[in-house]
Amino acid sequence: MSDSLYTQLLDVTCGAFLLAAVIVLWRRELAAIVRVFALQGVALAALAVLLGAHEERWDLIGVGIGIGALRAGALPYLVRRALAALTEDRQGYATGGTETRETQPLVNVAASLLTAALLTLLAYAVSRPLTDLEPTPATRALPVGLAVVLIGFFVLVTRRRALAQVVGFLLLDNGITATAFLATSGVPLIVELGVSFDVLLAVLVLQILTTRMREAFGTTDIDDLRELHD
């Protein structure tokens, strides 16, 4: 693969990766958010495969495919199943719609989009030393990974639906994985395996907790979790 084509593809992949995070912030329908998240997983996998092909490391390509299966397949599937479980017994009620939408985020969508713009600039500012250490096409795209981390954190903090928070957490994690790929072509295999396994389990745990929350509170609105305070 020629260098310029590699740079081009890398930039396009990173752009798609970042764009997916922004669209998650933009959309209100949880189903749409999960779809976009799956697309981001595809972009992440493509990034890994691209780096593997460029460095001619087959293990990295394998990791990329594994990551794709996990982040574009398994995790969205889990979240979607939780979403389906939330809505299946609510069809007849007026509340059915509110469970699947992020109706009242803490910060409204327009403001959060502008905040995302600021967060992206912040990510660029913060990652200057990282890029300066070894300027290559991959490390130059590092801000993208950090920006997705920050946007994920922002989603986690401002969204009021339990499942939207789960997606925020997963965005955060995607961002970190992308950072790892861009900076060092991925962490060692054993760590990568452990991390993926942990993330999968964390999402399983959150999925089950969502169900329990619905059983206990009758809703998955985080604002209703206010019994514990000082």
Binding site: G15, L18, W26, A110, R140, V144
Partner: peptide, 26 residues
Amino acid sequence: VPELLAGSFLLALLAVTSSYFLSGGS
């Protein structure tokens, strides 16, 4: 409408940042 426009503003800003940082140094 402001949401839509804020979104497009964000896209434009991302375009500027990525054009400046991704390929700016090359």
